[in-house]
Amino acid sequence: MTSQTFILELPIKADDSQSRTIAKKFEYGRMLYNATLGSGLGRLTQMRQDPEWRRACEMSKGKERNELFRRLNRKYRLTEYDFHADIARHREGT
């Protein structure tokens, strides 16, 4: 069952200088997001080629399977903290 959703959009009252600053910051955020996403998707592709990942997919659901997936996520740096580190690296330009 879905509920109704209403969205109210209000224009930002900003002068040209502020509009340019906001546009630059949004563009920087978009580039940072895409760089981080690209890094993560590359590592995800590598993980899915690992025979351990295939084995984990074939296992029945349970603690052992979850632990194997957690280990793989750590091995291929796909945890939330790894993504925070990626963002920091991309922000520094390294």
Rank of each mutant, 00 (worst) to 15 (best):
A56S: 09
D86L: 01
S60M: 04
L32A: 06
H84K: 03
T5W: 00
T79H: 04
Q18F: 13
K75D: 07
A23Y: 11
L41E: 15
R91W: 09
H84A: 07
S19R: 12
K61N: 05
S17W: 03
L8N: 09
G42K: 08
A35L: 15
T36M: 07
E92P: 11
S60I: 07
H90S: 03
I12E: 15
E9L: 10
D82H: 13
F26N: 03
E9P: 01
D16L: 02
M1H: 03
D82V: 11
K25R: 11
G93C: 12
K13T: 11
I12Q: 13
L32H: 03
Q49S: 13
L10N: 13
T2H: 05
R70K: 06
S3D: 12
E80Y: 14
G38I: 00
Y76R: 01
L68Q: 15
M31I: 10
A23P: 13
R65F: 00
L10F: 12
P51A: 04
A56Q: 03
F69G: 08
R91S: 10
R91C: 06
G40Q: 11
R89L: 06
G62P: 07
S19M: 09
R55M: 10
L8G: 04
N73W: 04
F26G: 01
F6V: 06
R89V: 00
G40S: 13
Y28Q: 15
D50A: 04
T45E: 15
K61D: 10
